[in-house]
Design a protein around this nucleic acid. Structure first.
Lengths: 316, 316
DNA sequence: TGGTTTTCTGAGCTATTGCTCATCGTATGG
DNA sequence: CCATACGATGAGCAATAGCTCAGAAAACCA
């Protein structure tokens, strides 16, 4: 039986991982203990890592990062800020902040009293939900801030809300709408229909919003993912768009634009200034202006980023 | 200033640990990033570990088992200890530990050089031999530690030794004696006769002893199986018996009693303290005092049990 | 200041690990 | 029932990590 096999394989992987990382044995010793070849023991250890059966947690506050976080927190009056060590080899690496986001989600979801978590877009957010520790919390609610139907009508794009719900057993509210409607009128009509109004109502009560921050340039994720066309993107850039959060474009001062795609956008609009905990997650030099603007405009009141990005934001 | 140095050194250690474990770089890469030699990078990673700046968390039920096993092993100086996940649906289920016992037998018997395996009583031991993988090892020897003739003179009770011999083609030595003789004198006479002395001699050279552990209460297996009468059981309890291994009753400190049925018992007595690998297999809340006593008294130097039982033993 | 001790560093060796490739066994499907 | 393909396995090799040792730098003491 496949499931049985998988289970015992994961069991062995966990054993191997424990013996390797916690007990400190060599893979050769582990191989003998578990009666497998050394190669298999190595595979089990890798599997343990790949399946995230084991997680690493850095207990030590790295002074430099702590200081950057403190400065960001003070300067932009944030309720939450984390700065992870930069990885010079891969400045765009989302792994570090995803880990911290997952941690944040973990600790939020661990609560026994029901909580509502709202999720936006972004690679970091996606990577974060993958790393959330499974936990049974059927009374929590997970709600999407953005429509989950792409331009071509498929609902295929990465289902963050669903994934997180899988891991927690929480009720979830994806938003069954296209990212953009064809006109402002139509948008206004759609957001009033019952199921959408329901999602909106839940989102309004969210205890935590975790959102990615996108820059508005030729490499804008909203364009790469096919949610906005090249022309729409250029139009928004002409209108002064420098960044977007859940699709809502804003200018260099963090003011939401009242034109272009924003008028046809179905995403739930950000509170301005953010009152509920709204945490932006983003790294990379290209995103610095977008992040800084979002912070200035109060679109977010929390930030998870890396050392290099944090430094760049503060140096502007 | 030393503190400053230490601090920045720990900082670097944390950074190195982060880059190594979380970002997944090699120490060589880290060395270049931090502008130190590879050797120093290695030292920083070690330091990070040594100072517990980074911790590993294994998100798997097995983790708890591994830890319990390690604690039992240390606390009672065991040569072997395995803890299987408890089955909440069937706390008495012997299946899990039987599987592990079978595994242990498998790996012992796989050896090409002749080995001697001695078997005691117990449901787990019986279930284990049923699960041993058949293998042809005619030069091994399987020997029984207990008489295989019950009170009524039949040799019907479960023939562990024979079953295991069937599966391995090994020579086997059942012990053709009643469990209890009618008097101490008679016992002393019987154990000196040739066939029995032979069994005893083989057992003395056993490489592995696998024994069940029985509690001495109203539900004692030795009584249920009809080897000791209610009166005999009560007498032993009065004398302080809390558990038995191959019929040998011992008190709460794991000391063999020198009275009652122990004087008429034909079973081969345990070494105290155990020198050859002597593994106890038992689960269940009722057996906790018996197991703990056997461990304390050194009647066994190995244990296979389940999570709940392991926890209970350690919490005493 | 000069000697002494201690700590740190890097070179180089050995053990350990990760990976590739060929093989084997087994499940799947015609 | 056989053919095919898929995944698992072990051997062997290249990369990586851990360790020891000798020398250098720093700290300490008289």
């Amino acid at each position: 039986m496949a499931a049985e096999n998988d289970k015992s394989r994961l069991d062995d992987a966990a054993r191997a991982g424990w013996l390797y990382f916690i007990a400190g044995h060599t893979q050769d010793e582990i191989a003998k203990m578990l009666q497998v070849s050394r190669a298999s023991a190595q595979r089990l250890v890798s599997l343990c890592l790949a399946e995230r059966l084991i997680t690493f947690r850095l207990e030590h506050p790295i002074a430099a990062c702590m200081e950057l976080a403190a400065r960001l927190k003070e300067r932009f009056e944030l309720v939450h800020c984390e700065v992870v060590p930069a990885d010079p080899a891969a400045p765009q690496a989302v792994a570090g902040i995803a880990e911290r986001c997952a941690n944040l989600l973990d600790s939020t979801l661990r609560s026994e009293t029901p909580v509502i978590v709202a999720l936006g877009t972004g690679r970091a957010v996606r990577a974060a939900v993958e790393r959330v520790t499974p936990i049974d919390r059927p009374n929590h609610q997970i709600v999407s801030l953005v429509g989950n139907i792409s331009a071509d009508g498929s609902a295929s794009f990465y289902d963050t809300v669903g994934r997180l719900a899988d891991r927690t057993g929480a009720r979830h509210y994806p938003m069954p709408l296209p990212f953009l409607m064809s006109s402002e009128d139509e948008r206004n009509k759609m957001v009033r229909i019952e199921p959408i109004a329901k999602v909106k109502a839940v989102a309004a009560k969210a205890d935590l919003r975790l959102v990615g921050i996108g820059q508005m340039d030729q490499k804008a994720q909203v364009h790469i993912d096919g949610f906005v066309t090249r022309d729409e993107l250029f139009e928004m850039m002409r209108l002064g768009a420098i960044g977007e959060i859940t699709g809502w474009a804003y200018d260099a001062k963090g003011r939401l634009l009242k034109a272009g795609t924003n008028k046809r956008l179905t995403s739930i609009p950000p509170e301005v200034p953010a009152r509920t905990t709204t945490i932006g997650a983003a790294v990379g030099a290209a995103k610095v202006p977008a992040i800084a603007a979002a912070l200035s405009g109060g679109l977010i009141n929390g930030l998870i980023t890396d050392e290099a990005t944090a430094r760049a934001i503060l140096e502007r």
